[in-house]
């Protein structure tokens, strides 16, 4: 029997992979991927917890909503990365340090 715990564990694993990607990757695109992974981990949670809201299906609605938002955010993110690349000729966030104090 697959309980909610299994969903949560998978979700946490995905979330952690996402966090890892954000913290450790040298590539802005991979960081973006990490962000997507984290969003998706949360979406998975929404879907999993939607089982307890069988009246409004709030979880599913929120999941769809979040997917749309995530797609939009990825589009914006990619656009920023593209611009950054044009400007700095790199997408490694370590080298993009001109905002530093």
């Amino acid at each position: 029997m697959i309980s909610i715990t299994h969903f949560l564990i998978v979700s946490a694993i995905i979330f952690c992979i996402g966090v890892y990607a954000i913290l450790a990757k040298r590539n802005a695109i991979m960081i973006l991927v990490g962000i997507e992974l984290m969003i998706n981990a949360s979406i998975l949670n929404f879907v999993a917890f939607a089982r307890y809201d069988s009246v409004n299906y709030g979880g599913q609605v929120f999941a769809l909503f979040a997917i749309v938002l995530a797609a939009a955010a990825v589009a914006v993110g990619l656009a920023i990365i593209l611009n950054v690349y044009r400007h700095y000729k790199t997408i490694d966030p370590k080298n993009i340090n001109e905002l530093k104090d």
């Binding site: 954000i22 913290l23 960081i31 966030p93 370590k94 340090n97 530093k100 104090d101």
Partner: peptide, 9 residues
């Protein structure tokens, strides 16, 4: 305080 977003995170 090194300006690295990743570090901050």
């Amino acid at each position: 305080q090194n300006g690295q977003l990743q570090n901050y995170l």
